[in-house]
Lab assay of single mutants.
Amino acid sequence: ELKKVVALYDYMPMNANDLQLRKGDEYFILEESNLPWWRARDKNGQEGYIPSNYVTEAE
């Protein structure tokens, strides 16, 4: 089971490997080892790295 998180803030990608975050949207965490960058997937199936301090665990 993948960990689900909710974006606390918008995040615009800095490079091609990053994933855009939209405040309030849910994302699945694929990999937590790259702290403070986590690999995530959005609801459309896009994958990339996000800043872990921009998300919180979903209820």
Results as ranks from 00 to 15, higher is better:
16 A>L: 07
1 E>K: 10
56 T>G: 15
25 D>F: 06
4 K>F: 04
30 L>T: 10
3 K>Y: 04
27 Y>C: 03
55 V>F: 03
58 A>S: 12
41 R>W: 04
21 L>E: 01
29 I>Q: 02
35 L>P: 13
35 L>R: 13
44 N>E: 12
44 N>Y: 07
29 I>K: 03
39 R>C: 04
47 E>H: 04
25 D>N: 08
58 A>E: 15
16 A>K: 08
48 G>N: 00
33 S>I: 08
20 Q>F: 04
49 Y>I: 13
31 E>Q: 15
18 D>Y: 14
29 I>Y: 00
20 Q>N: 05
31 E>S: 15
36 P>G: 07
2 L>V: 06
5 V>Y: 06
39 R>I: 14
21 L>R: 00
52 S>R: 12
8 L>H: 03
3 K>D: 04
16 A>G: 12
1 E>R: 05
33 S>H: 07
34 N>K: 15
6 V>I: 11
32 E>C: 08
33 S>P: 13
38 W>A: 12
51 P>L: 09
22 R>L: 13
58 A>C: 09
59 E>D: 06
12 M>S: 13
1 E>I: 06
45 G>K: 06
12 M>I: 15
5 V>C: 04
51 P>Y: 10
45 G>D: 09
58 A>I: 04
13 P>F: 00
50 I>P: 00
54 Y>M: 15
19 L>N: 01
14 M>Y: 05
57 E>P: 11
11 Y>H: 05
48 G>S: 00
46 Q>Y: 06
34 N>S: 15
18 D>T: 10
11 Y>F: 13
46 Q>L: 12
43 K>A: 14
15 N>H: 09
57 E>N: 15
43 K>E: 13
46 Q>N: 13
35 L>D: 15
2 L>P: 05
17 N>M: 12
30 L>W: 05
57 E>A: 11
34 N>L: 15
11 Y>A: 03
7 A>S: 05
7 A>F: 02
24 G>C: 02
57 E>H: 14
27 Y>R: 01
55 V>E: 02
32 E>F: 04
18 D>P: 02
15 N>T: 15
18 D>I: 10
23 K>D: 02
39 R>F: 08
27 Y>F: 05
18 D>N: 13
56 T>L: 07
12 M>T: 14
42 D>F: 01
29 I>M: 04
49 Y>K: 09
47 E>G: 02
41 R>M: 13
12 M>Q: 12
25 D>Y: 07
28 F>G: 09
13 P>E: 03
26 E>V: 10
56 T>D: 14
54 Y>N: 03
29 I>H: 00
39 R>T: 06
23 K>A: 11
42 D>C: 06
25 D>R: 08
58 A>H: 07
24 G>P: 01
20 Q>L: 09
11 Y>C: 04
52 S>W: 10
29 I>R: 02
16 A>N: 10
51 P>N: 06
11 Y>D: 01
36 P>Y: 05
19 L>K: 01
38 W>K: 12
40 A>V: 09
8 L>C: 10
56 T>E: 14
16 A>S: 10
47 E>Q: 06
45 G>N: 13
17 N>E: 11
32 E>Q: 14
32 E>N: 09
